[in-house]
Structure formats: C-alpha cells, structure tokens
Simulated assay, not measured.
Amino acid sequence: MTMTMRLQRLLPIALVLLLAACASEGVRQRTLDSTLYQYAGAVRWGGLDQIWGYVDPKLREEKPLTALEMERLGLFRVTGYQVVSSSETAEGNIVRLAQIGVVNRHTQAERVIGHREEWRWDAEAKRWWLISGVPEIGGGR
C-alpha cells in the first residue's frame, strides 16, 4: 500500500475525530454560558438552595453548610451582582471575580463584597460545577 493510499484512508478518520473534538468544545462553551447566566440569576434573585445546587457535590459533602451559616446568609438580601473579570486556568477551569451588593435585613446597611468563583467542567456529567463554594455574604467560611 502506498503512502498516498494510507493518507487517503486516514484522512476521513482524522476529520471525524477533529469534528468530534470541535463539537465537544462547543457543548462545553454553550453549557458554560448558560450555567453562568443561570448562576448570576440565582445569586441575584434566588435563594441559598438555588446557589447551593451549583456547588460541586464533592465540596457539598466535604463542607456542608451549617445551620448557623444558613441563618447568617438569610440575614442578607442581594442588591447586585457584577462580574469584574474572567479567565481560564491552565487546567481549563474558569475563574471569575464578582462584586456582590448586599443589604443586612435588620440594619439596612449596604456593602459590596468580592467573591472569587472557580468553575470546573465535568465532562462525564456534561456540566460545570462551582468548586470555590458559596459567596461569604454573612462572614464565616
């Protein structure tokens, strides 16, 4: 078999593999965009239950929220959520720095806190997980 014939046989296989890789990256990016949009809504308008659903299951198991932490988080109302920067790590994780405006329900004192989010792609589940935990709105953690 000549080299040309070998290349003719391998070319379709290489093209299929390349297309599969591109499709996989497309799913990853679309899922990231959707996840980050939904997460921003959960932080801004949802409750702790919605935010907690984005946290990596391993982290939820290792560091469950205590009753005191949940109570403390309930003392605050989110007034704003703005992403300041976003980057990708060498491992392919996404790191975002966000500013979250919060108001204490009792004192009505408003403040802005910084939160570093890190997101990990789970290829098996085809979804992104928050591996940095929930924002430290009420202190603690």
Rank of each mutant, 00 (worst) to 15 (best):
G140A: 06
R44N: 03
E71I: 02
V55Q: 06
S132D: 07
L65C: 14
L18Q: 10
V112W: 01
G80Y: 02
G53W: 12
V27N: 09
W121H: 06
E61C: 00
L130D: 05
L59Y: 02
E25K: 07
Q99T: 07
H106Y: 15
E62L: 13
A23I: 09
N104V: 10
R30K: 06
S87D: 12
L97A: 07
W52C: 00
E118M: 01
R28Y: 13
Q38W: 13
L73W: 15
I137E: 05
Q29A: 11
R116L: 00
I137K: 02
N93D: 15
L59Q: 12
L65R: 09
E136I: 05
Q50W: 12
W52L: 10
V112E: 03
V112S: 10
R9A: 13
G80S: 11
L15Q: 03
I94C: 04
M5E: 15
N93V: 05
A98H: 11
Y81G: 10
G92C: 12
S85V: 01
G114H: 06
L48E: 09
L17V: 07
L15W: 12
I131T: 14
L48F: 06
T4Q: 05
R60N: 11
L18K: 07
N104Y: 06
R141D: 02
R44G: 06
A14C: 12
K58A: 05
P12E: 14
G140R: 08
V95F: 09
W129H: 12
V27A: 12
L48T: 14
L59C: 01
Q29S: 05
G53I: 08
L10M: 15
R30D: 12
G92H: 14
R120N: 01
R105T: 12
G47V: 10
Q38K: 09
K63F: 04
P57E: 12
S24W: 08
A67R: 07
G74W: 08
I113P: 03
E136Y: 02
P135Q: 05
A123T: 03
T31S: 14
